[in-house]
Design a protein around this nucleic acid. Sequence first.
DNA 1: ACGGTTGCGTCAACCGGTTGACCATGGGCC
DNA 2: GGCCCATGGTCAACCGGTTGACGCAACCGT
Lengths: 353, 353
Amino acid sequence: MKTTGRTTIADVARLAAVDRAVVSKVLSGDPALRVRDETRRRVEAAATTLRYRPNFHARGLARARAGAIGLLVPSGNPLMVAVIAGAEEVAAARGLLLWTASHEGELTERYLRLLRSGAVDGALVAGLRAGYDADELFHDPRVPTLLVNRRSVGAERWIILDDERAARVATEHLIAQGHQRIAWAGGPAGVDTAERRQNGFRDAMAAADLWLDPSWLISADYTPEGGVHAVSQVLRSPEPPTAIVAADANEGLGVWYALHQRGLRVPQDVSLIAIHKLPAEDYRLPAMTCVEMPLRELGRRAVELILDTPWDAPIRETLQQEIRISRGATVSAPPPGSGPASMTAYIEQRPGG
Amino acid sequence: MKTTGRTTIADVARLAAVDRAVVSKVLSGDPALRVRDETRRRVEAAATTLRYRPNFHARGLARARAGAIGLLVPSGNPLMVAVIAGAEEVAAARGLLLWTASHEGELTERYLRLLRSGAVDGALVAGLRAGYDADELFHDPRVPTLLVNRRSVGAERWIILDDERAARVATEHLIAQGHQRIAWAGGPAGVDTAERRQNGFRDAMAAADLWLDPSWLISADYTPEGGVHAVSQVLRSPEPPTAIVAADANEGLGVWYALHQRGLRVPQDVSLIAIHKLPAEDYRLPAMTCVEMPLRELGRRAVELILDTPWDAPIRETLQQEIRISRGATVSAPPPGSGPASMTAYIEQRPGG
DNA sequence: ACGGTTGCGTCAACCGGTTGACCATGGGCC
DNA sequence: GGCCCATGGTCAACCGGTTGACGCAACCGT
C-alpha cells in the first residue's frame, strides 16, 4: 500500500507472490524465462487486477530505448496528413508509437533537445525551411535521424520523392496539350525540392525545344500566398504564358486564385497543373489538375528505413513511384492563336501567326 | 570514460569538478540553490562543451512528470491541423512538448497504455467515433484526460464548440436568403456533435416556422463519401430541397460533388452551407460557404484547461466564440417559384404559387 | 574565544523497471 | 549415494537524474 496512487511492478510482484524480475519478464514476454504456467497465470492475473501499466520512463531508462519514433512536420500543411498516416501505419505494425510534432520551418532548441534526449528512438524530420542548417541535426544526433523530403548537406541521410520526374511529367502534360509558353511557379530559393522540381521543369522544356523566359521562373513559398505572388511576377511579362506549372498544390491554389482575380479564366486562358494532390481534391468541382505523389508511401518508407538502417550508415533513397496525373479541370489546349515561346518554333510559325 | 557514448550528468559533474546534484540544480534553474557565479559558469561551460542533454526518461522518472502533453486526433482529417496548431502554441508557451498521435476513431490498447504509462502529463482526445466507450478512458486515467469536441458520458471532462449555434447560424443564413425547403446532411448517429448540430438545425427551422421533412434529416459520416450518401437520400424525395446544410465541411464537399453529378447546379438549383472551414478554402473558386468555427482556439483552450484544472475536477466548457459566416459561392436565393415546405406557409402562399 | 549564521556545496536515497548472474530443489542416471 | 542437469525462480546492480537533509568553512558579533 504505497502512498502514491500508481501501481508499480512491486505491487504486482507482491500480489502474485513472486519477484519483481519475474513480473517484468513475464509481462514483456522474455523468451529466456522458464516459469510454470501456473506462475505465469498468477502474474498475469495480478497485473490485470491491479490494472498495472509499466511506467514509460522507467522502462525507457532501463531499456535505453523509448519504443517510439518522432516525426516532425511543418505545421499547417494539409499534405502532411498523408505522410503521417503512412508513418503511423508502419510504426503500429512494429509495435512502436509514432509521435508527431509540428515545427515552423526550423528546429528550435526545444525540439533539438527533445530529439537528443532519448525520448524517441528515431527522428524523422520533414519539411525544413530553406537555409536551415540541417547539419546541426546530424552533428551529434544521439538518435538516428532521417530527413524526409529534403536532402541534407552534410550527413547523407535522406529520403525524397522523385521531384524532378514529377515536374517533368507535369510539364510534359502541358506540352502534350500544345502549350509552348509555360511559366514555373516554383518553390522557395534554396529549398532542395524546389531546385529539383525546377530542374525537371527545365529539362522538359529543353527536351521539347521550348524557349524558357527567365522571368517565368518564379521562386515563392509553397503556400497560396506564394502562388499569388508568383502570378504577379509572371504577368509582368508583356506576353503572358498559356500555362503555369505550380511546384506545390498549395501554391497552385494561390496561382489559380490570382489568375481568376485578374480576369484570366482557367483553363481557357491559362492552364494550370500542380505537384501534389490536396486531400479530397477529387471531390472539388472544378478540381485542380495535378501530379499525385506517393506521400503515404514516403511516410511508410521513412519509418522502415530509420528502423532498419544502422545509425551511421548513409541513407539516400529516392522513391521511384508511379507518377500519376490526376486529371482535374485546370488544363486544356492553349487558346487558339497563342504564339509559341520557343525561339525556333517562333520563327517557323511566324508566317502562320 | 563510460563505454556508452551518451554524456550523462556525471560526465558534466566530473568536468566541472562538482557534485551531480549541483549540475542538476544549476541546469534546471533551482532557485533554492546557492552557488558562486564562477561555479555556475563552470557547470554551464562543461555542459556546453560536452553537449549534455538530460536524459528524457531519467528526468521523467525522477520528477514523475514527462514535460509533455499528448493530443490524439482522428487520422486524416485536415480540419485537425488548426486544432493542433492552437494546442502547440500554448504548449510551447508553457515549455511543454506537444505530442500528437492519430487514431482511427477508437483508442486501441496501444494508446490507452501510453496515456496511462506516464509518457504524457495530460491527454487530449479529439474526435472519438460514435459508440466508442469513452468511459474506459476515465476509469483509471492515471493522467488527466480531456475530451475535445465530444462530450463524455461518464466523467465530465470535455471541451466543445457551440455546435448548436453554428448549425443555427448556418440555417438562418439560408432562411434569410429566402430558402424554405432545407435538408440536413448530418453527422453519424450517436456522435455528440452530430446531435448538437442537428438540434441547432431543428431549432432554426422551428423558429422560422418551416416544415421539416423527416426524410431530409440524414445521418452520414463526416467525410466526402458521407456527403455523397446524404445527397442520394435527400433526392429520393419527390420535391428536392432548395438548400442543404452540411454538418461538416468534408461532408459538404461530398454533397456539392454529388449534386453536381446529378446535374443540379450550386447555388442556382440548390444552395449549400457547411459547418467548419477547410484549410485554404478562401483560395478556392468557387469556395464553399461555411460557418467558421474557432478550431485553433479549441486546441489552445484545451491545453490551458488540462494544465490548469485539477485532475478530478469536472470540465464542461463550450467555447462561446464569435461564429463567422465565410461567404463562398454556394449560397444564393432559392430558384424562383420554388415552393415552401412549411405547411402553414405553404397554405398561405398557395394562391400566389 | 565561542556560538550562530551564511554561503556553498555534498550525500545518498529515491523514481520504477530490466537483466544477467546466481541459487535451491528434485529427478535421472550410473 | 553422489554427480549432473533442468526447472523455476531470486538477487542486486544498474539506467540517469532529482531533491531534501546534512556538512563544513569562514565570518560576524559580542
